[in-house]
């Protein structure tokens, strides 16, 4: 301690008998240039920071007014943003230009412990650990058994109970033999309802709006002599009667990642999935010719009943939508 001071400003020694305590002033060297503030023109820097703060204050007040008067998001956002911008700019100018310019340094001591310290740590851990574990193999195994059973058992509330097993629900939709084709309002579709090139999203009447049952009914051609659209050679004769009167129906669930394949271009007879742009040729059993889709869209076999309504001969003959591990080549 310096011997010629016994109190006064900045000594850190409280004056006896008074409540005045002075803050000790840490110091290194009184001449050190690092302690000069950074600004060459402190007045200007202070005015800049002050202006920024005042602008911020005005903007915050503006925010208050805008909120009170329920102005639009534009005014709420600009006032709030300018308020923070002013406050922030002021703080940054203050911190950069009106504080000691530095640089200062501190030591970066090695974090690595000495060999001796490490040995002591390992020794403490191992020696007392040894006393606990030595010849207690049975206890360790018993604890292991209990923890193991807890681990297995916890999988049930934490994982298994989250949802049902998939079982066969990915294989079947709600389409059945005889299901009517209805649109989203529930109206049954008749032959003649669509123009050539027209299409509509249809569902079975039992599952209107269903994510997996959604089907695209497209009128491709005028009625033909045979009464049915000819399927591609590899699907003859299986699909000979699936597309009556120039109407054809495919699953709307893209076989790539499940988006609804909702676009149809009549000129090229192509369905386009808007998500990743897979193209399916309708006249070739919705085989993908472009984009990442790997498999054709499943086709719904149709017939027209005696009242003229479209109905499904059966459900889809394969799982609809994107693939999964279990389905193999179904």
């Amino acid at each position: 301690m310096p011997e010629d001071t016994d109190g006064g400003v900045g000594t850190g020694v409280p004056d006896e008998g008074s409540h005045r305590v002075t803050i000790p002033v840490t110091s290194v060297s009184v001449d050190a240039p690092q302690f000069k503030i950074a600004a060459k023109n402190p007045r200007r820097a202070e005015m800049l920071a002050g202006a920024a703060f005042l602008l911020g204050a005005a903007a915050f007040a503006g925010f208050g007014a805008a909120y009170w008067q329920n102005y639009s998001n534009f005014w709420l956002g600009t006032t709030l943003g300018l308020g923070f911008a002013g406050a922030g700019a002021g703080m940054v100018v203050w911190g950069k230009y009106l504080m000691p310019r530095g640089p200062f340094s501190e030591a970066r001591h090695s974090l690595v412990s000495t060999e001796a310290q490490r040995e002591v740590f390992i020794e403490d851990f191992a020696s007392r650990g040894k006393v606990a574990i030595e010849r207690r193999g049975f206890l360790v195994k018993a604890l292991g058994l209990a923890s193991g059973i807890l681990g297995v058992v916890l999988a049930f509330p934490l994982i298994r109970s989250l949802g049902p097993l998939p079982k066969k629900s990915l294989y079947k939709t709600a389409w059945r033999s005889g299901s009517y084709l209805v649109d989203i309002t529930g109206r049954k579709i008749k032959a003649g309802d669509l123009e050539i090139g027209g299409f509509v999203t249809v569902f079975p009447e039992t599952d209107i709006g269903g994510a997996y049952s959604q089907t695209m009914l497209i009128r491709v051609d005028p009625p033909s002599a045979s009464g049915y659209m000819t399927p591609p050679a590899r699907f003859q004769p299986e699909r000979d009667t699936w597309a009556p009167q120039g109407y054809i129906a495919f699953s709307k669930v893209c076989t790539h990642a499940g988006c609804p394949v909702g676009l149809y271009e009549e000129l090229t007879k192509q369905m386009l999935c808007p998500c990743h742009q897979s193209l399916f040729i309708v006249s070739d059993a919705a085989t993908p010719i472009f984009g990442p889709a790997p498999r054709p869209l499943p086709q719904l076999p149709l017939y027209i009943d005696h009242a003229g309504y479209f109905r499904a001969q059966d459900g889809y003959n394969e799982p609809v939508g994107p693939g999964f591990w279990e389905r193999g080549n179904d």
């Binding site: 998001n73 534009f74 005014w75 709420l76 956002g77 600009t78 709030l80 943003g81 300018l82 308020g83 923070f84 911008a85 406050a87 922030g88 700019a89 002021g90 703080m91 940054v92 203050w94 911190g95 950069k96 504080m99 000691p100 530095g102």
Partner: peptide, 23 residues
């Protein structure tokens, strides 16, 4: 120094977010 600058930076980050949201 750092407390001043970093507080300013917090305000500036909020400011940029707010102005983006307004505009």
């Amino acid at each position: 120094t750092f407390i001043a600058k970093t507080t300013g930076f917090l305000f500036l980050t909020t400011a940029v977010t707010g102005l983006l949201s307004a505009l």
